[in-house]
């Protein structure tokens, strides 16, 4: 093959990638950063300043929402991991052959259904006139309807439900690759269930745990639908603030600053997660 032809092929393959990354990812984010550093002095007149960031730090509502979103997302991630791990282990290690395949496919079902539909299902279950409230009344466990929607628990239930799949798939994949004889060896050497779990199973599953946690955290942090629909007016989710600034108030400078802060927070926590588990971004994502 002539080198010229190779150069041409490389050029043709490289162009779409560069156009995509530059025009839709890199430049828009740089642009957002520039806008976030602008302050409107008069109509159509701007100057560079940190006023939008100062506004964020001097307004308790912003800071509280920011911290609340981060804490709830971390909590949702940990709970998802706790709920998903035994299930993934059951599928990967306790089941064999056909039934294993079927159970695994069953776990994927909610993923094929729109997030909106899933959230709507929880609304029907949890609201005042909803299924759970009606059932409890007909069993006369409670008097009168109870409202289970529009609180933090409802948001949490929705977040965990929506991101379950992204935890189960990497966990099942890594646990599946763990050789049974290693677990047996752990027991033969006198380990208890707890020892084997801590010394053999969890170290082997670390890549899966890390990638699952990162994806679930990102999905929770950037979620808009679940907090708005299940949390109602007082859900106080950070993406809601960004939406309000951009679409309702038309204050793009402030909105861009909030967006940059959310991006910064998510990058920081992903980086921390990778550092703590000793994984590389490249390996975890692909």
């Amino acid at each position: 093959m002539q080198p010229d032809k190779n150069k041409l092929a490389l050029f043709l393959l490289l162009t779409p990638l560069l156009v995509w990354l530059l025009l839709l990812i890199v430049i828009p984010h740089l642009d957002m950063m520039l806008i976030s550093l602008q302050e409107r002095v008069a109509a159509r007149e701007y100057r560079t300043s940190f006023s939008n960031y100062i506004e964020f730090f001097s307004e308790p509502l912003y800071i509280n929402t920011f911290i609340r979103t981060a804490v709830m997302s971390i909590l949702a991630t940990l709970l998802t991991l706790l709920i998903a791990f035994p299930v993934s282990y059951y599928i990967a290690k306790m089941m064999k052959g056909q039934s294993k395949q079927i159970l695994f496919l069953l776990c994927l079902i909610p993923f094929w259904v729109s997030e909106l539909v899933r959230t709507y299902g929880w609304m029907i279950l949890l609201r005042e006139s909803g299924v759970i409230s009606s059932l409890l009344q007909s069993l006369s466990l409670v008097n009168g309807p109870i409202e289970m929607l529009y609180n933090d628990v409802a948001i949490m239930v929705g977040l965990i439900y929506g991101s379950m799949l992204f935890m189960i798939v990497p966990l099942v994949t890594t646990l599946d690759s763990l050789d049974d004889s290693l677990i047996e060896a752990g027991y033969d050497l006198g380990g208890s269930h707890w020892n084997v779990l801590r010394e053999v199973i969890i170290p082997h599953a670390t890549p899966g745990i890390t990638s699952g946690c990162i994806v679930v955290f990102m999905l929770s942090l950037g979620n808009y639908l679940t907090p708005v629909l299940l949390g109602g007016k007082d859900s106080l989710w950070f993406t809601e603030q960004i939406y309000t600034q951009f679409i309702t108030r038309f204050n793009w400078e402030q909105g861009a600053a909030l967006g940059m802060l959310l991006l910064l927070l998510s990058s920081l926590i992903v980086w921390l997660g990778l550092k703590l588990s000793g994984q590389s971004f490249r390996k975890v994502m692909s």
Partner: peptide
């Protein structure tokens, strides 16, 4: 790993 809302907003700005 970019939240969907941020991706939308940045493209809107640009």
């Amino acid at each position: 790993v970019v939240p969907g809302v941020i991706l939308g907003v940045s493209i809107l700005i640009f």
